[in-house]
Amino acid sequence: MGLLDKEFSDGNIVIAKVDDLMNWARLSSIWQLGFGLACCAIEMMATSASHYDFDRFGVIPRNTPRQADAIIISGTVTLKMATRIKRLYEQMPDPKYIISMGSCANCGGPYWEHGYHVLKGIDRVIPVDVYVPGCPPRPEALLEGLLKLQEKIRNESLRKKIT
């Protein structure tokens, strides 16, 4: 993590930059909004369960947007749902991150042409940090998406959020 190697040989003191410390804290406990939409949500639940264990990266589902750091858009976003997602996103405190999971959330997926009810990509409504491809993505893919998000957070600065 780039923190423990700066430990003094005696005593419990670590010297670090505030940026690194804040980023380390943020990326190690990305609490996600407990929220699923379609078949991707099944994979997301599998990722949370003991076999893949999302919790080892500090990801815990929270039941309210006010306590959440990240939102995983796991499935088909209908136009009706998109208005609700936007509202949930707006209720989350900064800094907040979005993982778009699966083809539907990325670009409409199989509904791209005849889906009269489907939003063709969640990035038309809210800004996405990481796109995870797949239909649905396997838990490994979602885990890699999370690692990419952690990498992104690690390079942030307090002065400016990397977009």
């Binding site: 998109a82 670009c107 042409e113 009269y116 009810h117 939003l119 063709k120 038309r124």
Partner: peptide, 20 residues
């Protein structure tokens, strides 16, 4: 009514673009 054969999807719904 979306399943009518002559249905035309709108360009926008509440500011969100609907077609691909």
């Amino acid at each position: 009514y979306p399943l009518r054969k002559d249905y035309k999807n709108p360009e926008f719904y509440k500011g969100m673009k609907v077609p691909y």
